Computed example of a mutant assay.
Amino acid sequence: MNLIDAPIVAETAYRHGVSVGDPTPTLDKLNRPLRDLRLSVIDQCNFRCTYCMPRDVFGADYPFLTSAQRLSFEQMVKLAKAFAQLGVEKIRITGGEPLLRRGLESLIEQLAKLTTLSGKPMELALTTNGSLLAAKARSLRDAGLGRVTVSLDAVDDAVFRRMSDVDIPVSRILEGIEAARAVGLAPIKVNAVVERGVNDSQILPLVRLFKGTGVAVRFIEFMDVGGAGGWSNTKVITARETREIVESEFPLVPIVIGQQMGTAVNYRHADGAGEVGFIASVSQPFCGSCSRARVSADGQLYSCLFATQGTDLRPWLTETASVEQLAVAVRSRWIQRDDRYSELRSTVRKPGSGKVYPTVRMSLVGG
């Protein structure tokens, strides 16, 4: 189905009584259920990480969304209710840098009241670069946020500043992590994107720093998303290579497969002092189990991190449209979903072609 036809199909489905809100999984064409919503609240960020928002592209004159172009919190809550009717059990707030969105606590407070189809509280998480977390941790927790993931690619200040390309010390992010731990935003996860020749020297220091603290470090393979225009396979350090580096100093024990959660393959320190995870998004893609939908700050539904086109949900975010109508619109798009870019990367991105795959920018849709 052409994405342009989605509104027509959705409205037709609604008129014919397609049901939502029952426990039957909402499955796409590859039988993947809709379980996770990544909700971007802002496309701006105060970092200029080289692999995501390089400064030469995202300069001072870059046309970010205006406040009028961004969805209101009321619209975001309506979205969340619709996704909950379709089986979503977890909402992750993303950006850009979500803590730049004013009054975010009020959105979290409303989202925290939602329940899943089974009647359980909606799992509510947030991903942040951590620069504003120390000042916000308590109010976020009080509003109902469950846990937080902090993006941190280096503990060496010079490497950190080089990668983030801003005049912010790594100590500020570490203070944010400690503040989150102190108020009970747990479990805390630290995500590090590893790029060969850039921050591979930081793998062991990251593990050393967080071992025994209750903070789980997860290493992510360098992906060709967002601003990674210079991406190349040669810059990828595979999850297996990263694990071997970690195990050169810290013996690891694999966690039983049945206890694995999310996209990471997790290991425990042999001495019981915490966990380390590895996300093999390039070398061992997990498209077959992807249950994530992404909604950008301007109301576009994306069915894949590598999508090139979204479905505009704003027609169902007006005061006259119901949550049920919005849910049918989302369902109509999800059941047509067949994305599996990471599994097809080698054919989509033909070696030597010089072409850059035109993914939606990550700061808009969230990672």
Rank of each mutant, 00 (worst) to 15 (best):
T12L: 15
N266S: 15
P54M: 04
W334N: 04
M122C: 02
L39W: 07
N266Q: 15
I279P: 01
G274Y: 03
P285H: 06
A192G: 11
D5E: 12
P254H: 02
D271P: 05
M362C: 05
I188P: 07
V246W: 04
R349M: 15
R294L: 02
L252K: 11
G310N: 09
V148C: 10
V150R: 04
P315H: 01
E11G: 11
V225I: 11
L114V: 03
A134F: 00
S171D: 15
E89P: 00
I203N: 00
A82F: 04
E319V: 11
V183H: 14
G354M: 12
G288E: 12
L37Q: 05
M53N: 11
L107Y: 02
C290E: 01
K90A: 13
R240P: 11
S72N: 13
R92Y: 03
H16T: 10
F73P: 02
F250I: 02
S67A: 15
T347Y: 10
M53K: 03
G17F: 01
G258P: 03
D338E: 14
F306R: 13
S291K: 12
G144R: 04
R138L: 10
A321G: 10
L126D: 01
T149R: 13
I335F: 09
G21C: 02
E109Q: 14
D36K: 12
R38M: 07
A321Y: 02
C45K: 06
I188A: 08
G59I: 02
T26C: 10
D56T: 12
G103P: 03
L364K: 12
L124C: 09
K29V: 13
Y14M: 13
A68G: 08
R196S: 05
L99I: 07
R141L: 11
P358V: 11
L301W: 10
A10D: 06
T311I: 14
S72H: 05
E247S: 10
S303M: 15
V148Q: 07
Y62M: 13
C49Y: 04
Q44R: 15
T149W: 14
G367L: 09
L3V: 14
A158M: 11
V41Q: 03
P351T: 13
Y51T: 00
G146L: 03
L86M: 04
